[in-house]
Design a protein around this nucleic acid. Structure first.
Lengths: 232, 232
DNA sequence: CGGCGAAGAGACATCCGACGTATGGCCGCC
DNA sequence: GGCGGCCATACGTCGGATGTCTCTTCGCCG
């Protein structure tokens, strides 16, 4: 195995064994490269690799630190690879989303506070004002925030961030939908309201069902779009 | 932004725009570095970063290629970051697994062929012979294969690999369980058989329920273990 | 006495050039 | 026509030089 890959594993091991903890600062590149027995150039490749997956945080002029290693952070990198999937894979990703989002809504139904529900209400209220072409982008943004607010209330950070990461790429799809499909805004708002009502009633089963309906609706549209592309 | 990060984005963009396709070979490092306007050293950092997340495949003496970019491949890197999570995060990961595995079993119930079911049967049969201390490792292996066989039959590669990736880290937990808990082997086999029977009957709902029971059982044990560790 | 700004040390960022080594293909011999 | 060795090519690794940013410290000024 290459020295760089060995260095990656060694640094990873230093973290898993507790030799390095979240927030800790690594020795300077020169020093660390010597103790790991490789050149600074090769070590930098290893550090860069660990940086892109959010394990290390390199601060120029200061030093290199171990990140908090929170699920939220480590799963962030997932959205990077999701971006690389083609449209057919996006359909599979939606297959996962239609499993996770209803589950998150189900959990949120018993956990959301009245304050959080009120905030969701306000968000929904704001969405109704996103009309016209110039409002499309705002609608997408409010849509994202609505979903995020729910998933973040499910009590499982890992689940929340996972949904968040695999949803990022679909932003584009949402935009397309908003621009091409008539009545998309009204339908989205109606579905969101249905979810919110279910959450208010603490009806986990219903909230889950509405969430599934919502995601499946987008999925249907996307499938049709992909099929159309295939024919073209 | 640093030149290296720019290079990462540029290469990513070359892939998303179709300028580079799966299997394509990149220009030599020297050439590519010149066309991207940075040194070979810096470019190598970018390439290494894309290599660890399985976007690029570097072959010494040959060249650098774009991988197949299949979900299976890209999600592989996820297990790397899962390894870095602490025990408390593992509980959250189980929270996700208990959502995904039953869903996968539900899908598999209507999709598995008789041949696949027979193979699963054989796997289960083999597991019953994993007795004694030396059989613990084999039991864990058969356990993994059993779950993999089901998730891979769910018809969604993305879902299958996601479950696979977040399960990898739990191998350790499985081993602990096998070693410390009395009757773990018998219980696992019984639960597996229940899942298999439900799949044979094409009873999606029941298969899902048994899968949830199975995962929740491990989760319970893990939660107790973590709590015990916290007290210590 | 406290705050502020400049200087310096430390650390990462980037580049360059050189040499090592594995791969793949070409070419000649059998 | 097949096989084996040679060579161009490309990645792997290294060492050093230089630029630039950050943080800290120290001294000046209000």
């Amino acid at each position: 195995m290459a020295v760089t890959d060995e260095a990656i594993l060694k640094i990873k091991e230093m973290i898993t064994t507790g030799r390095l903890s979240p927030g800790d600062r690594l020795p300077p590149e020169k020093e660390l490269s010597e103790s790991l027995g490789l050149s600074r150039s090769s070590l930098r490749e290893a550090v860069k690799a660990l940086e892109v997956i959010r394990v290390l945080d390199v601060r120029r002029g200061d030093g290199t630190y171990v990140t908090s290693l929170e699920p939220r952070l480590l799963l962030e990198a997932l959205s990077f690879v999701v971006d690389l999937h083609d449209d057919r894979s996006v359909l599979e990703i939606f297959g996962v989303r239609r499993i996770l989002e209803p589950a998150a809504a189900r959990l949120a139904a018993t956990r959301m506070t009245d304050e959080q529900l009120d905030a969701l209400e306000q968000l929904l209220e704001a969405t109704t004002h996103d009309t016209g072409v110039e409002g499309a982008e705002a609608l997408v943004q409010h849509d994202l925030e609505f979903h995020r607010a729910i998933t973040e209330s499910c009590g499982n950070d890992y689940l929340a961030q996972l949904v968040e990461s695999i949803s990022s790429h679909t932003v584009r799809a949402r935009v397309w939908r908003g621009l091409t499909q008539q009545g998309a805004a009204e339908r989205t708002i109606q579905e969101h309201r249905a979810i919110l009502n279910a959450l208010r009633q603490r009806d986990a089963e219903l909230a889950s069902a509405h969430a599934l309906t919502h995601v499946a609706g987008i999925e249907d549209w996307l499938r049709a779009a992909v099929t159309a592309t295939d024919r073209a």
